[in-house]
């Protein structure tokens, strides 16, 4: 479904060029759940943006469904660390935003999408909140709205950039389990960036470990624990512990002293 061959990414920083990613080869199967894990600055977010077509690689090729990625695709959705809701739109209207951007119709009628939106809001426990504005919701609920929005186009691929990392621990666990449940009902390929080992082990079929500066693929770990997995009671505790330990080891390996990534340039914020 997603194929990266020899992908590299170099940014022009303040003090010369910064290699964010180097020689990444990765193949994600259809319907697979892959988590990308690594320390900050290992280029995991960059990798996700490359797959999304938000940036183009400086070397190598990125393919989604066999086609080279040249820009954002309709069947690929992106979910951000923050809810990224438009504050003046109601919950329902935020969920419908992608359809509106498409010109309202898409391959079904708008009414059908509206039904779908209600269905998704029900699935995430947001029924009754359709008319609310984002600021009236808790952080967890906002992120649920964001999840509904990224599902409204029935995407082939969902790219998720640490979507639960800004939430409190309980809400985070709740949402992770919910995502797993939703994933089991849908045929969607998911690439999920996180720096939480717990989250990675709960969600992923495969965990891809990246090492920083330059971002390289360190190891790919298969997780064969049957679903649905839970964080509390678990019949496979030893297996979870073994994998968590392994990931810990991989992430803790000595690396060169880490510099914070350069802040984003103001230019990026200017209108195109």
């Amino acid at each position: 479904m997603i194929r990266l061959d020899g992908v590299g990414q170099v940014f022009d920083g303040r003090e010369g060029q910064v290699t964010a990613l180097e020689e990444i080869d990765l193949h994600v199967q259809q319907n697979e759940f892959v988590t990308l894990i690594g320390r900050s600055g290992c280029g995991k977010s960059t990798l996700l943006r490359l797959i999304a077509g938000l940036i183009s690689p400086t070397s190598g090729t990125v393919r989604v469904a066999g086609d080279p990625v040249t820009g954002p695709r309709r069947d690929v959705s992106f979910m951000f660390q923050r809810p990224a809701l438009l504050p003046w739109r109601s919950v329902l209207s935020n969920v419908m935003l992608p359809i509106e951007i498409d010109g309202g119709e898409g391959d079904r009628g708008k009414a059908a999408y509206r039904d779908r939106a209600h269905q998704l809001l029900e699935l995430t426990g947001l029924t009754g909140f359709e008319r609310r504005l984002p600021h009236e919701l808790s952080g967890g609920m906002q992120q649920r709205v964001s999840l509904c929005r990224s599902l409204i186009r029935d995407p082939q691929v969902m790219l998720m950039d640490e979507p639960f990392s800004a939430l409190d621990a309980l809400t985070r666990t709740e949402l992770s389990e919910e995502l797993q449940r939703i994933k089991m009902e849908l045929d969607t390929t998911i690439v999920f960036v996180t720096h939480s080992i717990e989250e990675a082990v709960l969600l992923a079929d495969r965990v891809v470990v990246l090492t920083p500066r330059p971002g390289r693929l360190r190891e790919v770990v298969d997780i064969d624990i049957p679903r649905p997995r839970t964080l509390g009671q678990n019949a496979h505790l030893t297996e979870v512990a073994r994998i968590s330990g392994l990931l810990h080891g991989l992430l803790a390996e000595k690396v060169a002293p880490v510099e914070e990534p350069a802040p984003r340039q103001v230019d990026e914020v200017r209108p195109r």
Binding site: F78, F80, R82
Partner: peptide
């Protein structure tokens, strides 16, 4: 993130 959102939606 809102600018990126709109870009990701094409």
């Amino acid at each position: 993130e809102l600018v990126e959102l709109l870009r990701s939606l094409n």
